[in-house]
Amino acid sequence: MKILNIQRMSTEDGPGIRTTLFVKGCPLSCKWCHNPESISPSSHTEWISVRCMGCNTCIQVCPKQALSSTENGIEIDQERCIACGKCAEECPTGAIEVKGINRSIDSLYKELIKDKSYWGKDGGVTLSGGEITMQSADSLLLAKKLHENNIRVAIDTCGFCKWETLKKLVDYTDIFLYDLKIFDPKKHLEFTGQDNSVIFENFELLAKECKEKKKTLWVRTPIIPRATDSDENISSLAKIIGDKADLWELCAFNNLCKDKYDRLKKDWDYCSSPLMEAARMKELVKIAIDNGGKNVIWSGMTKREE
């Protein structure tokens, strides 16, 4: 399985305290993405400026001459880089990281359960993205192994996958964290790079399946300025979601990932977008409820009120 990292004592990826597995590769490429390093399914190399001591070891050890020293620091030619990890290994300060490491299911399992004592009655393991269903065979194996050892599994998914993949996961999953972002298909395509019909079809099927098999279904909608934060979008989503979700969480946009885009040398449309206002989040919750949404809450950082 190709993973990004494991986050322990996560309090934001489902109920209770959780250990979250983030994996590499996502079929969507949302313009606001908070983990842009997770989008590409292949491994890549990143340079973290604040950690660098300027020794140029990385340049010297690279077998492909992909690294160079510029006035902006170390530049990595992603075309040449084969993500062999040599530079990361030799870097004395950990300023170079390879994103996307292959790990066996057994070794992952062993690490994922280390916090079992802290999970309490609600917590467990969350399999998250990129998009966990992209590695369908491995995710199924892992979820199965966790489930068989009485560990509560949460699947955090964008829903853009074959229905079969989700269906198979249901038996080994306790809770789905399902993203519904934009109702309007054109707009969805514009902001995420993909059509949303599969996502909504899968949602209907999953909701039915969860009800039958008594699994929990949480819907999450990121509230992104100009993309998902309109009254219409929320009211339209509300009509679809209705009472199908056990919880619908509106997650306020945050801008903590600016550095990640810098490292990827990518422009980010949202780098100067301010945080949402708490009042607006409350308004959206009201709209969601007024249009049939049940158990709607909002979360995330908002502007500090003076």
């Binding site: 004592m9 309090t11 209770g16 305290i17 916090d115 004592s117 802290y118 999970w119 309490g120 609600d122 917590g123």
Partner: peptide, 22 residues
């Protein structure tokens, strides 16, 4: 931020219970 609301206080309790064990 870890203790910002009732839900997170529950999570913190869960941490303390885990600490009791480990």
């Amino acid at each position: 931020s870890l203790l910002r609301d009732a839900e997170h206080k529950e999570k913190f309790k869960s941490f303390l219970k885990g600490y009791t064990k480990n």
